[in-house]
């Protein structure tokens, strides 16, 4: 690997190692992109098992700082006010936010408990401990539950407001969730009023501007503004359960050229402040069936 000598006169030619590493990186990309059963998957599992718990720990240390981040993003609006007022504001805001977290979580938990009891769903509560950076251009989060809690691939993730996304990776103690708003995410949706079906795609924007576009299968159907959209559901409830609230139709854009209409849906969930979420690990009828089978065996 020592292609040139170190020290005084450094050769100007490109040495072997970096070229080799670039080629290896390109190889990894090719293999991971092209193969369904990528060798990167088991590696991701190993790294996830190691990094997951560390992420959970760091996250609980950083959670009180959430308020600081919010402060920075609101600074442009506060510029006119004097420095002392800003500092006091941040301090109060931080206090308020941290005081509110526990109460918020308790309220969320209560709502979810009632909803899931009615629907006969088994859920596990989880906290968001890591958020994929905007530099990665994909909208994923890490949650602090994993296979030991019964979480597996393609499970539905929701919170008290509605659908959050689905599990794309499950490691021992953490799982990765692809958010509904990711540009790569497509969810089957049903219009509440007409029961018409369509596909919801995200626009990748985590902020309040994050919107989903709903393309109905029957192009003659026009969604009404304010109409609620729920999930259509998949076979056996994976990746998505049916009937989970997703959002409401905000506007309808029609293109006269190709006669299709696209409804812009504002999601119920606020993706920029995700904290507590719930993973649906099973439903009551399913559980009864497994128990019956177990009884016979």
């Amino acid at each position: 690997m020592k292609s040139h000598t170190r020290g005084g006169a450094r050769s100007r030619k490109v040495p072997l190692l970096p070229v080799l590493l670039v080629l290896v990186a390109l190889g990894v990309i090719t293999v991971d992109a092209a193969m369904d059963d990528s060798p990167a998957e088991p590696l991701r599992g190993v790294v996830g098992d190691v990094f997951g718990p560390v992420q959970s720990g760091l996250s609980s240390a950083a959670r009180p700082l959430n308020a600081v981040g919010e402060f920075f993003t609101t600074v442009p609006g506060l510029r006119d006010e004097n420095a002392a007022l800003r500092a006091a504001n941040a301090q109060l805001k931080a206090q308020l936010d941290t005081a509110g977290i526990d109460a918020d979580r308790l309220a969320g938990l209560e709502i979810m408990r009632a909803v899931t009891r009615d629907a006969g769903l088994d859920v596990v509560a989880a906290s968001v401990v890591g958020v994929g950076p905007a530099q990665s251009f994909s909208r994923t989060v890490t949650i602090d539950v994993g296979t030991v809690d019964g979480v597996t691939l393609d499970m539905t993730v929701l919170n008290a407001d509605g659908l959050v996304g689905r599990v794309v990776r499950a490691d021992r103690s953490t799982a990765s969730v692809l958010l509904l708003i990711d540009a790569d995410s497509v969810v089957g949706g049903r219009l509440g009023s007409s029961m018409e079906l369509g596909f919801l795609a995200g626009n990748g924007d985590l902020s309040d501007q994050g919107r989903l576009s709903l393309t109905t299968i029957d192009s003659s159907v026009t969604a009404a503004v304010g109409d609620a959209v729920v999930t259509w559901g998949s076979r056996n409830g994976a990746p998505y359960l049916s009937g989970v609230p997703v959002g409401s139709v905000e506007s309808v854009q029609s293109s006269p050229r190709d006669t299709s209409t696209v409804a812009i849906v504002a999601p119920f969930v606020d993706f920029s402040s995700l904290d507590q979420v719930f993973v649906v690990v099973g439903s009551a009828p399913e559980r009864a069936a497994t128990q019956a089978e177990g009884g016979l065996g």
């Binding site: 590493l21 990894v28 990309i29 990765s176 692809l178 790569d184």
Partner: peptide
């Protein structure tokens, strides 16, 4: 720098919640 960059990039590619094709940060 290149060697450490490769290691750091691969870690970023594989650590949760990364969902992109592995090797992109490494490159």
């Amino acid at each position: 720098g290149a060697a450490l960059g490769f290691a750091a990039g691969l870690a970023l590619d594989l650590a949760p919640p990364a969902d992109h094709t592995a090797g992109r940060w490494a490159l």
